[in-house]
Computed example of a mutant assay.
Amino acid sequence: MELSDIRREYTKGGLRSKDLKADPIDQFNLWLQQAIDAKLPDPTAMTVATVNSNGQPSQRIVLLKHVDKDGFVFYTNLGSRKSEDIKGNSKVSLHFPWHSIERQVAITGTAEKLTAMENMKYFSSRPKESQLAAWASKQSSRISTRGVLEGKFLELKNKFAKGEIPVPSFWGGYRIRPETIEFWQGGEHRLHDRFLFTRQDGHWDVERLAP
């Protein structure tokens, strides 16, 4: 079969302006809860796109850990490629691909680091194995074999066997303050529904986009 022959119809229903909430964060939370209720795998998984100093974009999937009126939060190694990109260019885009319910949400905004208190609060809530993994991995750096990583993990597991694990200085979170939020709902005959919210002077404007 040719790749160009692979297609399907989108029949889950449309999205009308009268059904939209006035605040896109409220709309996002509604859709996220519906994705969770639909038992989608990894409903909080989102693509984070950044651009480096040479203008080269890169993408990776991370997990959304908090959302409120101030923005979308995720955590990472502060020496990672994404963090280095953000250091030079804080403009970021996020994308939630909820394929099975024929929805997407695309967000553009600006990244800012979380406070030490916010980092500590979340880090202490993580499973101990995840805390150890944050220490063990120098994210995006080259390693010779997986055994090196596993060996470091076991070394740290023994080191912190009887005590609390401190927050690594090289680990923390980012909040993406949204400037635009687009909601996409699949439609029959490729007549998809798209609504773009844009932040203007402290409030949100919304407009329908052609598919």
Rank of each mutant, 00 (worst) to 15 (best):
Q33D: 12
Q33T: 09
Q34F: 01
I36S: 02
A38R: 09
K39P: 04
K39V: 02
L40H: 02
P41F: 11
D42K: 01
P43D: 09
P43R: 12
T44W: 04
A45Y: 06
A45W: 08
T47V: 12
V48C: 10
V48T: 08
A49K: 00
V51I: 15
V51T: 12
V51A: 03
N52D: 15
N52P: 04
N52T: 07
S53H: 13
S53W: 09
N54H: 14
G55R: 05
Q56Y: 05
Q56H: 06
P57I: 09
P57V: 08
S58W: 10
S58M: 14
Q59A: 11
Q59C: 10
R60E: 03
I61F: 03
I61Y: 06
I61S: 10
I61M: 14
V62F: 00
V62W: 02
V62M: 07
L63S: 07
L64P: 15
V67F: 03
V67Y: 00
D68L: 01
D68E: 02
K69C: 04
K69S: 12
K69P: 00
D70L: 07
D70Q: 09
D70C: 00
G71S: 04
G71I: 13
F72S: 03
F72G: 01
V73T: 14
F74A: 09
F74R: 05
F74H: 13
F74M: 06
F74G: 08
F74L: 13
Y75Q: 01
T76F: 05
N77Q: 09
N77C: 03
N77D: 10
N77W: 06
L78N: 05
L78E: 05
G79Y: 06
G79I: 07
G79N: 07
G79E: 14
S80M: 15
S80F: 01
R81A: 13
K82G: 00
K82Q: 09
E84W: 07
